[in-house]
Amino acid sequence: MPSETPQAEVGPTGCPHRSGPHSAKGSLEKGSPEDKEAKEPLWIRPDAPSRCTWQLGRPASESPHHHTAPAKSPKILPDILKKIGDTPMVRINKIGKKFGLKCELLAKCEFFNAGGSVKDRISLRMIEDAERDGTLKPGDTIIEPTSGNTGIGLALAAAVRGYRCIIVMPEKMSSEKVDVLRALGAEIVRTPTNARFDSPESHVGVAWRLKNEIPNSHILDQYRNASNPLAHYDTTADEILQQCDGKLDMLVASVGTGGTITGIARKLKEKCPGCRIIGVDPEGSILAEPEELNQTEQTTYEVEGIGYDFIPTVLDRTVVDKWFKSNDEEAFTFARMLIAQEGLLCGGSAGSTVAVAVKAAQELQEGQRCVVILPDSVRNYMTKFLSDRWMLQKGFLKEEDLTEKKPWWWHLRVQELGLSAPLTVLPTITCGHTIEILREKGFDQAPVVDEAGVILGMVTLGNMLSSLLAGKVQPSDQVGKVIYKQFKQIRLTDTLGRLSHILEMDHFALVV
Rank of each mutant, 00 (worst) to 15 (best):
I166H: 06
G185S: 04
M169K: 06
G263E: 00
A114T: 11
A265K: 08
R182D: 05
L220T: 02
H65W: 03
T257Q: 01
E176L: 08
P46F: 03
D35M: 09
K211N: 15
N93A: 08
K119A: 05
L42Y: 09
G116W: 07
D140K: 07
C109K: 01
N228C: 05
G274W: 14
P46A: 07
D120F: 05
P16N: 07
K72C: 08
G100I: 02
K36S: 02
I92V: 14
D245I: 08
G26S: 10
A71F: 11
R132G: 09
R276L: 15
I166M: 12
I240W: 00
P33Y: 04
A231I: 10
G259N: 00
Q243D: 12
R45V: 07
S73M: 14
V204K: 07
T135Q: 09
G205F: 12
K98P: 10
E9W: 04
T150S: 04
K269F: 02
N216R: 02
G274C: 02
I152Y: 01
P229K: 05
K36T: 07
I264E: 00
A24R: 10
D86V: 13
G153W: 03
D86S: 10
G134C: 07
K39E: 10
T53M: 04
L248F: 14
A195V: 15
D179F: 01
A157V: 09
L77G: 05
I92H: 05
K30F: 04
G258L: 00
K211S: 05
S27M: 14
S50H: 07
L154I: 05
P41D: 04
P215V: 04
G153I: 03
H22Y: 08
P88I: 04
S3Y: 09
S3F: 14
G11P: 03
T191N: 04
I219W: 02
P200L: 14
M250D: 00
H218R: 14
V90E: 05
N228Q: 03
I84E: 07
N113I: 03
T257A: 08
I261T: 13
N149G: 00
P229T: 06
G14P: 11
D198R: 06
L268I: 09
V180I: 05
H203Y: 08
T236W: 01
V189G: 08
F197T: 07
K137L: 14
E176K: 09
S254Q: 06
D79V: 13
D238Y: 09
V204P: 07
